[in-house]
């Protein structure tokens, strides 16, 4: 969940995102009760990044990145909202052209047991708001 409803930011702004994960429930053999099984997530990466779309090959650049290892994940309550904050750069702006689109997003990549990965991505806009003097 983004800190602004319109998901529109400009350079120098601080982006604040709340995220949480609901891992699949598994039934306990001992008690027979269903519980969140967070241990299947081996590591997790959060990125604030831009990427290009369109006719040309994809380019991307990660602006802010954090990796959570198993030890960190064990100490976290993933189903509770976590906060990701990043100060946004002045460029490149989100752009939609004929051959090229520049998209900004917050991306969560989950590395699961067995080598599977899950990627969740949420777009936002980086625009210019400051008029020239």
């Amino acid at each position: 969940m983004f800190c602004r409803e319109d998901q529109r930011y400009s350079g120098g702004d601080t982006l604040s995102v709340r995220w949480c994960i609901h891992p699949p429930a598994s039934r306990s053999a001992a008690t027979g009760e269903e519980a969140w099984d967070a241990s299947i997530i081996q590591s997790l990466e959060t990125s604030v990044m831009w990427y290009t779309e369109g006719k040309g090959e994809e380019d991307f650049k990660v602006h802010a990145f954090r990796r959570y290892g198993m030890a960190e994940l064990a100490a976290m309550e993933l189903s509770e909202p976590q906060i990701l904050e990043a100060e946004l750069p002045y460029s490149p702006h989100s752009y939609e052209g004929q051959l090229l689109r520049i998209c900004w997003c917050v991306r969560l990549r989950l590395f699961l047991q067995g080598g599977d990965e899950i990627v969740a991505q949420h777009p936002f806009l980086l625009t210019a708001t400051h008029a020239i003097d």
């Binding site: 290009t52 490149p92 752009y95």
Partner: peptide, 15 residues
């Protein structure tokens, strides 16, 4: 123009 896209350069795309 005030709403124009700025110059941009990445390995495979540019304005």
């Amino acid at each position: 123009p005030s709403g124009a896209m700025h110059s941009f350069r990445s390995p495979h795309n540019a304005v």
